[in-house]
């Protein structure tokens, strides 16, 4: 792990990495950030256990935390660099409670891709180092193969873990259902309940 800006240019593919998440953890509850993370997830597979957010930027990882503390099943968050930057403090909250069934994936495309691709400034931010510094375990990936390994290691870790994955920006045409209460109700119904 290094605090040097990553300028080597190697990037993973967000669509293939999202598919790898569903392949490795087919029953996981997946909470996806508004915009690209949700669009990609909906295109890979529109599952009942996908909780797509349509708003509340910066609150995606907290939704995953609350869910992971409530249920025993695997919870995976698909967050973005812009949303994570908006609430870096949330990682400290995750570390404080440290549920072992939570993995936070930060797909870092370096841009506010949903609003036109303006630079997010994330090239100066080492998300894996930030996560480690506040007490989470973290892993990094800049290729699809490395992501598969990093996600597996994050699942194995006995505590909350973050996977920081540099990806190329994508602009998928797929969209989750626009009926937001339906998305939430369908997801909740698919969770078994205590």
């Amino acid at each position: 792990m290094s605090s040097e800006p990553d300028t080597d240019g190697q990037r993973a593919d967000q669509t293939r990495c999202t598919a790898a998440v569903l392949e490795a953890t087919p029953d996981a509850a997946v909470v996806s950030n508004l915009g690209v993370a949700s669009y990609v997830l909906a295109g890979v597979e529109d599952r009942e256990r996908n909780c797509y957010l349509w708003g509340s930027m910066g609150v995606t990882t907290p939704v995953g935390l609350g869910l992971a503390l409530e249920v025993d099943e695997q919870v995976t968050v698909l967050d973005g660099d812009g949303s994570t930057l908006l609430s870096l403090g949330a990682l400290a909250t995750v570390a404080r409670h440290d549920p072992s069934n939570l993995v936070v994936v930060v797909f870092d495309n370096g841009a506010y891709a949903t609003t036109g691709g303006q630079p997010s400034g994330s090239e100066l931010v080492d998300f894996a180092a930030v996560a480690e510094d506040v007490g989470m375990r973290s892993f990094e990936a800049t290729s699809d193969e490395a992501f598969v390994e990093a996600y597996a290691a994050a699942l194995d870790h006995d505590g909350a873990a973050l996977v920081a994955c540099r990806v190329d920006p994508v602009d998928p045409e797929s969209r989750p259902p626009l009926d937001f209460p339906h998305v939430a109700r369908r997801f909740r119904d698919a969770m078994d309940g205590a």
């Binding site: 939704v63 935390l65 503390l69 949330a90 078994d192």
Partner: peptide
């Protein structure tokens, strides 16, 4: 603000 997300997650998990 995190609390709104955390408690949404709790509700989605039947809490």
């Amino acid at each position: 603000e995190e609390g709104v997300g955390v408690l949404a997650g709790a509700w989605l998990g039947h809490g």
